[in-house]
Amino acid sequence: MTDEKPPTRQGALAWMPIVVMAVIAVVDVMAGPRIGLLPLVSLGPAFAGLVGGWRRTAMIGALALLLCVGLGVYNGLFVKPRGYTAMASVAGVTGVGIAAAVARSRREAELASVRSIAEVAQRVLLRPVPLTAGPVQAAVSYTSAVAEARIGGDLYEVVASPHGVRVIVGDVQGKGLAAVETAAVVLGAFREAAHDEPELVGLGERVERSVARELEDERFVTAILAEIRADREVVLLNYGHPAPMLVRRDGKADFPAPPSYALPLGLSAHGSDGPQPFRVPFAPGEQLLLYTDGVTEARDREGRFYPLGERTRLLDEPDAHRALEALREDLVRHAGGPPGDDAAMLLLRYHRHRDGAAPTG
């Protein structure tokens, strides 16, 4: 997302210094020297310094000086100090405008560099999920609560490992750089352990240990881990995270809850037992949506939560990415803009979802 202004607005701002000086000149000619509008010509380079580069500001300043001289001669002001005072005012404002334009250009260059780094960080931290992994197709959506934000505390990953397709979706407590750092720790541990650990419980324990070493001040991460094999089941491991939505072939939605709830990642020091894995049937023609609480806790103007279970029809689109984009757009409409919290969604469906054919991978 960029902060570029719309073309029409850019054009209006670019012409504003010229228009201001033209209006001042016309009014000054019509009103005569008694009104004393000549110093207001300096508004031209002043506006130019706010919206243009230093070269344009200098050109507008030179034009303002010529206009000032012309009006001063026309009004006979150079027989008094008044005309020279007006020229000094225009020259001074032009100099300040050039300095402001140079400083703004430097800040914009620095901001562009920071955004470029943020984009690289996003590609490393939240890299694109594979289009297909084992027997499933995958699509992901991330909606930031902050319009200019690139990355935040929500995380997701899909890994095709020798032990099946392994997935994580999580939500880091807190905001800002600390949340991004924690998300990086979780994803790094998950990506490494997903290939090594034969059991999903062992994978979860590896991630838990990594998070417990890094987190401080009672910070935590809610997460759900999933493992999909070719046996038409999905194994789930829930660390205090919202239950996923399983959309059956008839369009009905189930939210499979764990047999017992466990603490989020990072709170193992409190002595609670870890989550117990549980199996849920997951066959061709069905879809599994994992998400963060920014989805279900998004409110409309009347304070109503987003009714995710009533929006399964939006996932009927054959293309998984378009289906998820339709759901994201509906979420934004419900919230009247970006939701109050980051909202990540990961959609998994078998190959040939529409006709329910057997998996091909």
Rank of each mutant, 00 (worst) to 15 (best):
T2L: 13
T2D: 14
K5C: 05
P6Y: 04
R9T: 15
G11E: 10
L13N: 02
A14L: 15
W15C: 11
M16Q: 04
V20E: 02
V29H: 04
M30P: 00
A31R: 10
L37R: 10
L40A: 15
P45H: 10
G49I: 02
V51G: 01
G52M: 14
W54A: 12
W54G: 03
W54T: 01
R55S: 07
A58M: 08
A58V: 10
V69M: 14
V73H: 05
Y74I: 00
L77N: 01
F78Y: 15
P81C: 05
G83V: 09
Y84V: 08
Y84P: 07
M87V: 08
G95Y: 01
G95D: 05
G95V: 06
V96F: 15
I98G: 06
A99G: 03
R104G: 04
E110R: 11
L111G: 04
I117C: 07
A118T: 10
V120D: 08
R123G: 09
V124C: 14
L125R: 08
L125P: 08
P130Q: 10
Q137A: 10
A139L: 03
A139N: 06
A145S: 15
V146T: 11
R150H: 15
L155V: 11
E157V: 06
E157C: 08
V158P: 10
V159E: 00
S161N: 11
P162H: 10
H163Y: 13
G164S: 09
V165P: 02
R166K: 13
I168M: 12
G170V: 13
V172S: 01
K175M: 04
G176F: 06
G176W: 09
A179V: 11
V180Q: 11
E181R: 09
T182P: 12
A183R: 11
A183K: 12
L187S: 03
G188E: 07
G188T: 05
D196K: 14
E197W: 01
E197H: 09
L200K: 03
G204I: 01
R206G: 04
R206F: 03
A212Y: 08
E218L: 12
E227F: 00
R229F: 01
R232N: 13
V235L: 00
G240Y: 00
H241E: 05
H241D: 04
P242N: 06
P242Y: 01
P244L: 00
V247K: 02
R249V: 03
D250H: 07
G251P: 08
K252D: 02
D254T: 02
F255T: 01
P256T: 01
P258I: 08
L265I: 12
L267N: 07
L267K: 04
A269D: 13
A269S: 09
Q276I: 10
Q276W: 06
Q276K: 11
P277G: 05
V280A: 01
P281C: 00
A283R: 14
E286C: 05
E286G: 12
L288Y: 06
L288F: 12
L290S: 00
Y291R: 05
T292N: 02
A298W: 03
A298S: 13
R299T: 06
D300E: 13
P307N: 07
G309K: 13
T312Y: 01
E317V: 14
D319L: 04
L324K: 02
E325G: 09
E329F: 09
P339Q: 13
A344L: 15
L346S: 07
Y350L: 10
R352H: 13
P359Y: 03
